[in-house]
Amino acid sequence: MQASRHAGPASLPIGSDADLAWVRQQVRQAAAELGFGLVQQTKLVTAASELARNTLVHGGGGHVRITPLDAGSSHGLRLDFVDTGPGIRDLDQALTDGYTSGGGLGLGLSGAKRLVQEFEVDSRPGEGTTVTVTAWATVVPPSRTVP
């Protein structure tokens, strides 16, 4: 599994603890190759860890697709976490801080959302859940005020 620069999307299975570790390593490597800063890398890898664990624990396993993005001068990384589990019944509730169904701290989905720039959940009860997140390797996020 080589996630080299300009590589196409890569798909990794999520079925065990060891897979979570492998997903973290691969996301880290892909983000580093795209020029993400250390803090951005750490945020994205942490978000990936939360979401991959959701896929494993709540979705009964699945896979993640890692897709490098290229929009002119900026590079990004899109991660799709796909499972065919029971789905999320109440998405608003699942996205609330502190809400937990799996004995964790209840920060998985809501916390991961705060660590990335784009976040999307597509969940159908009984069919499964796809969580898509995107992060960009911007040098500095666009300033809110211009002096």
Binding site: V39, V140, P141, S143, R144, T145, P147
Partner: peptide, 14 residues
């Protein structure tokens, strides 16, 4: 000194 926006506060924190 000056306005503390999101971008700047990231830099300050780091």
């Amino acid at each position: 000194i000056g306005t503390l926006d999101s971008a700047r506060s990231q830099v300050v924190m780091e």
